[in-house]
Amino acid sequence: MKIPVIAMMAAFIWSQGALAATDSTVTLEGELIDSFCYLSGVMGGPDATLGTAHHHCALWCAAGGVPVGLLTGDGKVYLVLGEGDDTTSVTAPGLFENQSHRITVEGRAFERDGMNYLIIAKVLKDAGIPNHTYEDYGSIPEAAAPRPAAKP
C-alpha cells in the first residue's frame, strides 16, 4: 500500500511544479546570447543571432536591459539573473562585456514554468568568441555592420 501513497505524493509534488522553482548548483559551458533576438526570430533564424555576426546587436540589447542568456550545447537557454556579487543583471559589467563569448560558469540554475534561469557565481573560463558566424551571415542586422572610419 505504500506505493500508491508515494505515487499520490509524487503526483501532488509534480502538480505544484508550476509554482516552485527547482534549484541546483551547476557548472555550465555555453555562449552568452541576446535572449530576445535568439528566441523571437526578429533577426531571422536563431543561428544568425549567435557569435560574431550578432555581437554588436547583442551589446545594444544588453545595454538596453534585455536579459542576457546562456545557450548551452544541449540547446537549453538560461536567462541570467545575476553574476557574482553583482546582482544587477540588467547592467552587470561582466555580462555586458562578454556578450557572444563562450564561457564556462559555476552558479545556481533554476527551472520554473518551462523556463531556465541562472545566477552565475563565478566565470571559470572565457574562450572569447570562437563562433565566427560573420563569415556566413555578415552582420545581423546589417545596420550593425562595421562602418568606414569618418574622413577628417
Binding site: T52, A53, H55, H56, L59, W60, A63, F96, E97, Q99, S100, H101, G128, I129, H132, Y134, G138, S139, A144, A145, P146, P148
Partner: peptide
C-alpha cells in the same frame, strides 16, 4: 558602454582587424 566595447574589440568582437578585413 557600447562605444567603449566597440572601441576595444570591434564590431564583431574579435578585434579591429576582422572589421577592417570585412569592410
Amino acid at each position: 558602454r557600447i562605444k567603449a566595447a566597440i572601441a576595444k574589440d570591434g564590431v564583431f568582437g574579435i578585434g579591429h582587424e576582422a572589421d577592417e578585413a570585412w569592410l
